[in-house]
Design a protein around this nucleic acid. Structure first.
Lengths: 176, 176
DNA sequence: AGCTTATAATTAGCCGCCTTACTATGTCAA
DNA sequence: TTGACATAGTAAGGCGGCTAATTATAAGCT
């Protein structure tokens, strides 16, 4: 994701608003701040995970496996839950396999499927990573009081429900 | 960035909290929601830009150039402002050059430098992209009232100031 | 049974990001 | 002045995303 370091100042926003009159400066600034906080937290998380030779993709796979009662899942299910394509999941699993954090076993009942299991090495890796992760998340969220946190969640929910506005193609009014 | 599709439910959080006692469930859920909103908006923006053969990286470069009074900057300055490495900027500029949206000119005063200029084709591309972008941002932010927007900005600020918590290495108490 | 279609996983090849290492040029101080 | 260091840009190679195409297996029709 783009690292939105440099949110435009008022002067620059005015310049853009002059050329593009539909601009609502306050909306744009809020939007860019949301993007920036998200990307900064994401980069921060990555830099923490990198200390353990992990990045978000592979870490998330380990977590998804740990959620399962028997520590087993399949590539398609993992891809679906992680929100990546199955091809990408193949690559992530290759990496995890190289470090023996997971194992691949052919499924008996459906021979197209492969079972992915969290190994004890994989569990050990999570046991190394997670305490520091939780500690840092706590520290981060101590920026807000309990009621601020709840308020933030509510605001995020409202925005989240609108998240599809970008995905609609531009509509040509004449064709409606 | 990871597409955080699947925020763990209460039952699963309990399981993790049992193994990792430092877990504060509310903090983690809020954190994951922040990440999710950020990554969804980022993906949404990308899918909008993709209609115009752009992605965030190259689009942002065009914007940075348009901010300049004479439409000119250098690769290093752009890399700094966009928050990417200079090597990455070289790649982005290669792409933009291929489509003639920018031009490269050797600087006279410092022959290490290269001047990057937004071409009229580049400006035309922005004129195509920006109105729809602003329209969609407005639509998105209409999810919130004016006072909610200001409150959200304030909450994001507080979190943003804590963003470095992930970057500190884990401290070994014994060595302090 | 044999087709057709659907599904699971992988491969190949693209893109944008990274770090590391390199080349060219500039700067500064002994 | 020249040697050491700093800075600008690029190249090489890795990673984690993607889509499209491929292979194997399963399921459903007729």
């Amino acid at each position: 994701m783009l690292q939105v370091k440099d949110i435009p100042n008022a002067e620059i926003m005015q310049k853009f608003a002059a050329r593009y009159p539909q601009t609502d400066i306050k909306s744009v600034i809020t939007f860019l701040n949301l993007l920036r906080v998200g990307s900064d937290l994401s980069h921060g998380l990555n830099s923490y995970l990198a200390q353990f030779d992990l990045l978000q993709g592979r870490w998330w796979v380990l977590l998804l496996l740990m959620r399962e009662d028997n520590l087993i899942s399949t590539p398609s299910a993992l891809a679906e839950k992680a929100g990546v394509s199955r091809a990408t999941m193949t690559g992530l699993l290759d990496g995890l396999l190289r470090e023996k954090l997971i194992s691949r076993v052919h499924a008996k009942q459906d021979r197209r499927q492969i079972q992915i299991r969290l190994t004890s090495l994989g569990q050990a890796k999570l046991d190394e990573v997670m305490p520091g992760y939780y500690q840092r998340v706590n520290q981060l969220m101590q920026a807000l009081t309990e009621s601020e946190t709840m308020h933030l969640m509510a605001l995020l929910q409202k925005i989240y429900q609108q998240r599809h506005v970008f995905e609609n193609k531009t509509v040509d009014i004449k064709n409606q």
